[in-house]
Design a protein around this nucleic acid. Sequence first.
DNA 1: TGGATTTGACCGAT
DNA 2: ATCGGTCAAATCCA
Length: 165
Amino acid sequence: MLAENLVGQIMGSFCKTLSILKSNNSNEDSQIPVVDVFPCRKDDRTSPEDSTGSCKKSSSKERRGYNKKRYFNRKILAKSIKETSTLVDDGHVWRKYGQKQILDAPYPRHYYKCTNKFDQGCEAIKQVQRIQANPPQFRTIYQGHHTCKTYPTVSQMLLDSSNRL
DNA sequence: TGGATTTGACCGAT
DNA sequence: ATCGGTCAAATCCA
C-alpha cells in the first residue's frame, strides 16, 4: 500500500511530464529534434575479422573490443526528464551499459537501455543520475520510446487509468 | 553456465 | 584537448 502510493505519486508526475512534453513538444531544456543521424547500422559493428582475428583476451586491459569500430547508431532522440526521490520501476526492464562521472555533478551518471533492445530492437534509453544525497533525489532522463512488446506493469496501468479520471 | 553488471577504452562533438 | 556517451571484455551472481 505504501509502495503503491509512492509509485502512484511518481507515476502521476511522470504522466504529467509526458503530457507537458506532448503539449509543448519543445520541453524545458531540450530543443532537440528527433533526428536520425545514422539511421542504419545497429549491430553491424561486431565484425570479428578486425586485424588479426586472434586478439581475444590477448592482453589484460588493452583495447577492449574496439578496433575500427565506430558509432553508427548515435541518435539524437526526444528527451523527457523526470526527477524522483526514489529509483522506481517504470514498468520496463533496463540493462545497464555504462556509468560515467560527470564533471559538474558530484555523482556519476548511469546509462541504461531497454533489455529488449536485442530481441525487439527497442530503442528506449534512460540515464539515471543522483542529484542529491539527502533526501535522496535522482534525475532520470528517458530518450526514445519503447517499441518492444513489454507492456507496463499492472500497477502502472492502474495508475495510468486512475490518472485519466 | 548464461545473463546482467562493472569498468576502462574508444569515439564523436565541441 | 576535453567531455559525454557507448562499447565490450571481464567479472559477478543466480
